[in-house]
Design a protein around this nucleic acid. Structure first.
Length: 541
RNA sequence: GGUGCUAUCGUCUAGUGGCCUAGGACAACGGCCUCUCACGCCGUAAACCCCGGUUCGAGUCCGGGUAGCACUACCA
């Protein structure tokens, strides 16, 4: 009926969080899908703050939300956003203000319109009275069947109502839902959904206590005024969608009503139910994009950014939780997502949060970053770790990048790099028992003595000498001069390469792990290498 | 309780009536590579919730069960 109209409309979507704390990862995904949809259609992505519950406001939450989206590269075209390269909030666009708490005057007008047209009424029932009713009547619902038993402008005379208003009595405005009407919603993901208006209650649209509307009213008024074409939000909103349709109708805006798409929920990795902050704490992974210090309750929540996640990994991971591309592709850049995204490829069922796959994505994207970039990211971790250690050698950025290049393929996160590289910075003070048991043989001290003598003879220049050889197609292998020194000796003595090299490795690393041995000696240098062997000789056995 | 949504390997999912002896990815397991630990590569195992119906033919359509989830506030 109004499909043609909607087709021609400019695509305008919004992400409309409420500033009640850190932005949940599910909310991030909703924002992402909105963003992808807007970009793909050359439309606008708006950000509006839904702060109509003055009691739940948390200071800093708004800044947090904007910073999180900024970190992830989810750009905002209109509404509230961070000024480029700063943490300063700016409002852009001609449909403002974009905070609902700043739109009071606007809502007054529309509340009045509904009141005047008979679609809404004033109710004076106190919370206590409502509780009493709920206790009295099982499954009490404020609706066509019960509203005539309540204290409202439908049951009182105009004079009575006016008198209470004049007295400053607290009141709310309720939407008058007509009973027994089938409301049809065409959901872009789920298709036709029909809900009977009997199950809807007379929702509160406005409360005089804080002179603010509730979500439902503000949402419809704002989406209309801001010319939103598509509402893409979580599945938890599906049950109230018919109420929203009824509101559009009551206002006479049905022709330009946005199209709805209700996204599947993000579920706990184990068991059932919505993913919550508790699950993250319990299972040891973040549920929020950035670390958040809640000023209201003093809690600190961990974030993906602080845990070492790369934003592109978080985006890729989230995109695939509830959506699947047209092919078998798993790795997507933001641009590729924009190209391939489609609401009809969004799944209908909830997605369990698969944290393991998130790690894998981060591993993949970590490999794509340059050693220099990783070195820079790793620096703070390194400084922190070295603070409490006796420093054997401080190294420059170039060298750190080189070290990282040797080990990056074995980590998922930047902070994990430390476990892989610590021995480059700090000489081993103890030797891993398991490694010793397996790799340190009776003859090892003798082998190490001989090796020491042999390595003494190598010049400082030859120590670092190596050349790249083409092994086969595209596969290069590095050949080290030290190999030519050590291998003939092992062979001539018939010692066994594994026995000697592993013992050597334990001396340098403290355990049977790490990159290729000549890479280690190269970075450690002759002097330090020999020192570590001597130290090991005095400490082991 | 009521209403709605959903239902393919352990997990994310492909599948829009014959291309399905059900495909990919993560995780698991095994092997290869190797001086070690990893990475990587190769391989193995692993699923259509149940019952009816429609049809020559159903994972795919319909009905009924069952289960899970969401909603059911002067929260969003």
């Amino acid at each position: 009926m109004n499909n043609n109209k909607n087709m021609e409309r400019r695509v305008r979507v919004r992400f409309a969080p409420s500033p009640t704390g850190a932005l949940h990862i599910g909310g991030v995904r909703t924002a992402l899908y909105n963003y992808l949809f807007a970009r793909q259609h050359g439309g606008d992505m708006l950000l509006r703050i839904e702060d109509t519950d003055s009691t739940r406001f948390v200071p800093g939450a708004e800044e947090y939300i904007l910073e999180a989206l900024d970190w992830l590269g989810i750009g905002i075209d209109e509404g509230l956003r961070l000024k480029k390269g700063t943490k300063e909030i700016e409002a852009v666009g001609s449909h403002g203000p974009y905070r609902q708490s700043e739109r009071r005057e606007i809502y007054h007008q529309y509340v009045k319109q509904l009141l005047d047209s008979g679609h809404a009424y004033i109710a004076f029932d106190t919370p206590e009275e409502l509780d009493a009713k709920r206790a009295e009547i099982p499954n009490f619902q404020y609706d066509a069947r019960t509203r005539m038993q309540m204290r409202n402008s439908l049951t009182m005379s105009a004079d009575e109502v006016q008198a209470l208003l004049d007295k400053g009595e607290k009141y709310v405005v309720r939407f008058k839902v007509e009973p027994d009407e089938d409301v049809h919603i065409h959901d872009l993901i789920r298709g036709e959904v029909v809900i009977n208006s009997n199950i809807l209650d007379d929702k509160v649209l406005y409360k005089s206590a804080d002179d603010l509307p509730t979500y439902h009213l503000a949402n419809i008024v704002d989406d209309h005024l801001m010319e939103i074409s598509h509402v893409i939000r979580g599945e938890e909103w599906l049950p109230s969608a018919p109420l929203h349709v009824l509101l559009y109708r009551a206002f006479g805006w049905e022709d330009t009503m946005p199209q709805f798409a209700h996204l599947p929920l993000l579920l706990k990795p184990d068991g059932n139910g919505k993913l919550s902050k508790r699950d993250g704490d319990r299972l040891g992974f973040p549920v929020f994009p950035l670390e958040f210090h809640n000023q209201k309750d003093g809690t600190v929540s961990s974030g993906y950014r602080e845990s070492g996640y790369l934003p592109e990994a978080v985006i890729n991971f989230l995109a695939l939780l509830g959506w699947h591309g047209s092919g078998d592709q798993e790795m997507y850049t933001m641009d590729e997502l924009i190209k391939d995204f489609s609401l009809d490829r969004v799944s209908k069922s909830g997605a369990k949060f698969d944290y393991e796959k998130g790690k894998w994505f981060n591993h993949q994207y970590l490999q794509l970053r340059s050693n220099e970039e990783l070195a820079e990211m790793f620096m703070p971790v390194l400084e922190e770790k070295l603070r409490n250690n006796e420093i054997t050698s401080l190294r420059n950025n170039e060298e750190i990048a080189k070290i990282i290049g040797l080990v990056k393929d074995r980590v998922n996160f930047v902070p994990e790099l430390w476990e892989q590289v610590n021995f480059f910075f700090v000489a081993p003070t103890e030797y891993d028992e398991k490694s010793l048991k397996k790799r340190w043989k009776e003859d090892s001290p003798k082998h190490m003595q001989e090796l020491l003598a042999l390595l003494e003879t190598v010049s400082e220049e030859d120590w670092h000498k190596n050349e790249e050889i083409e092994k086969c197609e595209n596969e290069k292998i590095v050949h080290w001069h030290l190999d030519d020194v050590v291998m003939p000796w092992i062979e001539s003595k018939e010692y066994g390469v594994g026995i000697v090299m592993n013992a050597f490795r334990i001396c340098l690393v403290g355990a049977a792990r790490g990159p290729h041995i000549w890479n280690i000696t190269d970075i450690l240098g002759k002097e330090e290498t020999l020192r570590r062997v001597r130290t090991a000789l005095t400490r082991i056995c």
